[in-house]
Design a binder for these strands. Structure first.
Lengths: 245, 245
DNA sequence: AAGTGGTCTAGACCACATC
DNA sequence: ATGTGGTCTAGACCACTTC
């Protein structure tokens, strides 16, 4: 049992449940509450913060969804004893690399409006042949090429310049344009590099590549991006956390 | 706007919010509520079901977490216009294949108690050299080998027989033993097949393989399984749905 | 101005795990 | 028997979007 210090600011615009969740998360990450250790029960926690139980419950649920805590009826709430804790969230490769201090660099290979191929039209929910933006980029980390990225966006959604794309990740540009990504369907696989891919990625033909295709949807349920990417398997892998609900 | 038929049974042991979620999900999957279409607002829905608003909210949140719905303040709740809808959940390959009608078959290559190698000890949170169960299995779908699976479990947690493993998935056996999996950290990558792997999987040496390592935790936060697997990339890929919270 | 979801309260009863 | 989380109510006020 552990009682981390908790305080809430009722004048802050930050929701109360979120303030509590942040403080609990900080206590866990700093090791003030050890893996395997039990938290106070919800009622005590609520009393101690001066909040109602549903509000405290919402804070705890937030951390359960994040994979930091597990709850069991009749038992209590415990910290998961996991070592790694990186999850693939709804960010683009650029965001990931920037967050990890990887100095991402982008070379724009193509920036066009094309007629949507069948597969793309199907994924984006537009008629085949409708105009869509097509991007092809080569992503570096430091001096090393890392991935070859091909994206399609519904026509008129976003008209980025090559300069925009060199400086920012695609998802960053989408967010800046007021598009809030909510859901993505991804498929991850592997195959051998074609000659062209190998040359672009500074690898030899036939080396294994990781492939990822993704269709992303915004907060209105519209498909806003379809991507088909290949990564050098020697330098990249996907990490994710699954949480059973 | 759409008003699917909804009814709740207050004598059922199934929670009310879950009954509502199930009926909404069925209406969506049957196409009775089309992608992009808006649902009634929460208050109307609550009135119509004879439930309180928080209960209906919980039902909707459940479907938002599943990636079926998106919500936006001031706008409403809409059905996502996604075509694919398979997510990697916390199931094992055996479960996945069985659910897809893939007739899984398992050949047990090794079933031992060994001293935990450093990497395994670290992932399972046991001292290096502690006794752990080691399993090596070859998983087929129909006549074709699909994956080579290596797992480690903390000593004493589960003592399966080769017959158990031939008939059931590992996760199924864990559940039957009262172990409830809650969280898993996975890493997905790719590399070339070694000669031994190629032979076991009926491929040629050097073909690309998908790799997946996973550490799974139960509802008490304990690490209960570490797995290191390789899949034939020509016959398998991972599909998952990401939801921004 | 009207309508939507987001947050919050102060309780209540229940199911499950443990002792 | 006790303590835990799971579910549920009937409201309230607020922030955001759209018209």
């Amino acid at each position: 049992m552990n009682r981390p210090a908790l305080s809430v600011d009722r004048n802050s615009p930050v929701p109360l449940y979120f303030q509590v969740a942040q403080q609990l998360e900080a206590a866990i990450r700093d090791g003030k509450v050890a893996p395997g250790e039990r938290l106070e029960n919800e009622v005590q926690l609520a009393d101690r913060c001066g909040l109602s139980r549903p509000t405290v419950r919402q804070a705890i649920q937030h951390l359960v969804d994040k994979g930091l805590l597990v709850r069991k009826r009749g038992v209590g709430t415990q910290v998961v004893q996991a070592q790694v804790r990186r999850s693939v969230e709804l960010t683009s490769l650029y965001d990931d690399l920037a967050a990890a201090g990887g100095e991402p660099r982008t070379e724009v290979l193509e920036l066009d409006t094309v007629e949507a191929p069948d597969q793309v039209a199907k994924e984006l929910g537009v008629p085949p042949g409708a105009p869509v933006a097509k991007l092809r980029r080569l992503r570096y980390t430091g001096a090393e090429p890392l991935a070859l990225l091909t994206n399609y966006l519904p026509g008129g959604l976003l008209e980025p310049t090559a300069a925009d794309l060199a400086e920012h990740g695609l998802y960053e540009l989408l967010r800046a344009a007021g598009i809030n990504l909510r859901i993505a369907n991804q498929t991850i696989g592997a195959r051998s590099a074609t000659a062209a891919e190998a040359q672009a990625l500074d690898e030899r033909r036939g080396v294994p590549l990781l492939t990822m295709t993704r269709t992303a949807y915004d907060d209105k349920g519209r498909a806003v991006e379809y991507g088909s990417h290949v990564y050098r398997a020697s330098r990249y892998s996907f990490a994710l956390t699954l949480v059973e609900r």
